[in-house]
Amino acid sequence: MNFYSIVHNDFDGTASAAVYSRAVGSLPANIWFTEPTKIHNLIGKLELRGVNKIMIADIGLNEGTIDQVISALKSLISKGASVQWFDHHVWKEEWKKKLADIGVEVYHDTQTCGAGVVHNVMNPQDEFSSKLVSADCSVDIWLHNDPMGEKLRRIVENNREFSWKKKIIETFYNGILWNDEFQSILEKQVDAELKGYQKLWKYYRVLEINGKKVVVAIRWRGPPDISYAAQFLMTREKADVFVSANGKAISFRSAKIDVRRFAAKLGGGGHPLAAGASLNMPLIYRFLRRVGIVSPANKWVSNIVKNTISDLGYFEYKQKNISTS
């Protein structure tokens, strides 16, 4: 089958494209890796060029761009396109209705990862896809219940180049979950991470907010990845929430607190245990961060975090039965 894929620029998006490809028996004619904040621009510029099937996966919607997304998709559908949209982020019911009203097939399930939604709809009997989805969900929605997820995420996100992501999808499409090349990359990545952990103390501080510890960090260059650092620092500092900022965005992580509420208050969203929002840091703090002075930036972010959490309070997230297959 001839189709286009539009997926999130991470492990879950890559896995979603691979699972869909296995379900339909062919690789995409073309694939785009993007972000929820950019999806409307991509769709608006998309040319069908004889391909009428479009799958979108692991891309959430937001209030600010929904009308532009609807307009762009309506135009493509009027030209003969059929669109399937698979996602697991939190949506408003009215968004689903708007998409359905213009002819988009919407498959939405917040109890799994993006690839899990694709798998459950398209090919739930495929054993290889079940293994890939299990690994993907483990890290994407912070279940941490499949060791393969920690390994594969390092492999997929080791290289952000399009050619690497495309190669990964082809590898998964052919039913290969692990190979010698992946093993070599993993060993080098872990070595670099171990060295990186020794430098983290420069970038974070620990706050006590409403009786709980919160780690606030300013992003650093190189490994460890922010998700792995979050787990490490929350364990080390006995903290319940981890927050990081990079000058343009802020992200929240927790093993038990619903942090999506904090991200939503700042205009963002995500998953209950892993969420984020845009946050433009003042230019002076970004400049100081670039020259290695992170304390002013950390103080600025910490004030925002204190106010946000103090206003909303903590709510423990009760996980429902999560579907990974």
Rank of each mutant, 00 (worst) to 15 (best):
99 L>W: 09
88 H>A: 02
50 G>C: 11
72 A>F: 15
66 I>K: 13
82 S>T: 04
102 I>L: 09
76 L>R: 08
97 K>D: 11
99 L>T: 00
104 V>L: 08
58 D>G: 05
111 Q>L: 02
50 G>M: 12
38 K>R: 15
73 L>D: 00
65 T>A: 13
79 K>A: 08
72 A>T: 13
77 I>E: 00
88 H>P: 05
82 S>A: 03
40 H>E: 10
101 D>G: 01
39 I>F: 15
75 S>F: 03
94 E>M: 12
39 I>W: 10
110 T>D: 01
89 H>N: 09
71 S>V: 01
38 K>N: 14
43 I>M: 13
81 A>D: 07
96 K>P: 05
46 L>N: 03
111 Q>N: 03
54 I>Q: 03
103 G>Y: 07
51 V>W: 06
71 S>R: 06
112 T>I: 00
60 G>Q: 10
81 A>Y: 10
88 H>K: 07
45 K>T: 15
86 F>S: 02
39 I>P: 06
72 A>V: 14
53 K>T: 04
42 L>C: 10
40 H>W: 14
56 I>L: 09
53 K>M: 09
62 N>Y: 15
87 D>M: 09
55 M>H: 11
38 K>V: 02
47 E>A: 10
92 K>S: 12
91 W>L: 11
71 S>P: 10
42 L>T: 02
47 E>P: 04
38 K>F: 15
108 H>K: 05
103 G>E: 06
79 K>M: 10
99 L>Y: 06
100 A>P: 12
40 H>S: 12
56 I>M: 07
55 M>D: 07
104 V>I: 03
72 A>Y: 14
56 I>W: 11
57 A>M: 09
65 T>W: 15
65 T>S: 14
105 E>N: 07
47 E>D: 10
73 L>S: 01
74 K>E: 08
70 I>K: 10
106 V>Y: 05
70 I>R: 05
72 A>C: 11
98 K>V: 05
60 G>C: 11
50 G>E: 07
110 T>H: 05
74 K>V: 03
112 T>M: 00
87 D>K: 05
69 V>R: 06
100 A>K: 12
56 I>S: 03
82 S>V: 06
44 G>S: 08
109 D>N: 06
82 S>N: 06
41 N>A: 12
55 M>I: 13
42 L>F: 14
64 G>L: 14
111 Q>R: 01
85 W>N: 00
69 V>W: 13
56 I>Q: 04
56 I>N: 03
79 K>D: 08
59 I>Y: 13
58 D>P: 07
58 D>Q: 11
109 D>R: 00
59 I>G: 04
109 D>Y: 04
61 L>F: 15
87 D>Y: 05
110 T>G: 06
89 H>R: 08
107 Y>G: 00
91 W>D: 04
94 E>D: 13
44 G>D: 05
53 K>P: 08
77 I>P: 01
45 K>E: 13
96 K>M: 14
96 K>R: 14
84 Q>F: 06
100 A>Y: 08
113 C>H: 00
71 S>C: 08
